[in-house]
Design a protein around this nucleic acid. Sequence first.
DNA 1: ACATTGACCTGAGAGC
DNA 2: TGCTCTCAGGTCAATG
Length: 262
Amino acid sequence: MPELPDIARFKKYLDATSLHQVIRRVVVHDHDVLEDVSAQRLRRTLQGRSLESTDRWGKFLFVELDEGPWVVMHFGMTGYLDYSEIAKQVPDHTRVTYQFEGGGRLVYVCQRKLGCVSLADDVQSFIRSRNMGPDGLDKRLDFEAFRQRLAGRRGAIKSALMNQQIVAGIGNIYSDEILFQAGVHPKRSVIELDDGELRSVHRALRKVLRKAVDRNGEIQRLPRSYFLPHREGDGLCPRCQRELDEAKVSGRTAHFCPRCQQ
DNA sequence: ACATTGACCTGAGAGC
DNA sequence: TGCTCTCAGGTCAATG
């Protein structure tokens, strides 16, 4: 479930709890989540360093060390961070522990192991190497840029929104909200959308992500006029009260209102 | 070049 | 109670 607004919350959480503390040691509980880095190199790179600042791009969280490369974290669909001042039992499915001098610790938890922890020399080259599109909240993603990135696409608009190479940060959940607010059916092909519809999708994308970040990625704190509280709740469209419908869109389950999204 | 599908991974919940 | 099946969903390799 972690999408752009969730990663923004994790970033804030890390900033508030873990910056400027010296790392005493790193424990890798499960090597499966390490990507392009051995446990030994991760340990040696981080030991004695401190976390100095964070950055986010799409669903990736980057953490700058006082010296050396950046730590990169991706949360798959079940990942999150947990900080504790005192030594206590780590949560189930803890994959990496960052133990600080002074007793605090930050852990990376990822039940389904679809996320990963890695090192990168710098944020920009990491993003380039993965061919990632602009972050969904990037100011440069204006309507023209958005339309250009969708040019030549024939697949479903929902798939395009979830494609990290087109726009980074949107997943299954928030693409549902965006398409609901734009009044566009998730299965509509990108090429058959006219300029007005594309503009609505773009406007909804910006608005939804901004609001969701503002609400800390907590769906129950979104306005009742939003789609997601009902997707997770009564299953009724907040606009017309009709029963929500679902459909498979390239392997994912899309939720939508059959009346408001034609 | 783009689109689609299955595999990866684990646990919850359904159905029997 | 316990077994099996399906589903959740981000991403990537393989296939169309």
